[in-house]
Amino acid sequence: MFAYAIRRIIQSIVVLLVVGLVAFAMFRFMGDPIDNMVGQERSTVDIERLRGELGLNDPFVVQYFNFLNNAARGNFGISYQQSRPVFDILLERAPATLELAGVSGLLAILIGIVLGVFTAIRRDGLAANTIMVVSLIGVSLPTFLIGVLLIYLFSVELDLLPSFGRGEVVKIGGWSTGFLTVSGLKALVLPAITLGLYQMTLIMRLVRSEMLEVLRQDYVRFARARGLPEKLIYFRHALKNTLIPVLTVTGLQLGSIIAFAIVTETVFQWPGIGLLFVNAIQFVDIPVMAAYLMMISVLFVCINLVVDLLYFAVDPRLRDDNAAVKI
């Protein structure tokens, strides 16, 4: 177990170092950042001064070392586009993305489990079949199309909900929250549905198939024979035993929610990290791209590491030494 954990952690660090190298290579070799920052009117003296300030005249190794050293301390340099430290921009944008991702994740889990249980219990009913077909359509459509169509329906035709932005936000310390105002909550509805829909259908289908499996077991039949109320059997006996795979999948989907926030944030012009990244790509703002790349890699590598180690702790079959090598 210990050897496996160490090997797995070293692997993760290597992955992060490689990603760091990619990020640095982007940083160093892609175009001349000065071109993107100054107009044609700037004098060569100004340009040279800026070049020195940004450390673009240092030798390669020094720049790489500086990059790693700074990145480890959360310093990703100055955005070419906004001329402000990238870290400050990220910090300012983070609450919007985290709130959106949190709400959509919660929605996906709650509604996904409820619908999953429902479609499993009434597996031949008309409502359950309709839900299954609709969920199939939901899975095969691109996220942004769902968002755009929701805007068309609820913002343009029905005029019920706002189509962009976060509404009014309240500042608590360094955290700006949209939870405390009516417009903030209203603005959250459509983006949260758009972002959570895919995960919701995924969880729903998983819960449904697991439930169908569990409901066939003898202990459920025995519970029925004892005359326990249906509600108790479904939620106490059956649902509890379906939750382990659901939790694993949900954990793995956590990263995807944050990554797919890019699309949803662009559709709804939600001022989060994802929108920042899209704008960074459009304007070739390398420091922001590099910082986002590093941040998301740390997130993904950590989630994968934790899930792998948990599997290992839970499943004794993996503890066989030969199996560990294969992983």
Binding site: V15, M26, A259, F260, I262, V278, I281, I296, N304
Partner: peptide, 14 residues
């Protein structure tokens, strides 16, 4: 381990 769309965006950006 990374979503395909993210990889595609990065490659496009680079």
């Amino acid at each position: 381990t990374f979503p395909a769309i993210l990889v595609a965006m990065l490659i496009f950006g680079i």
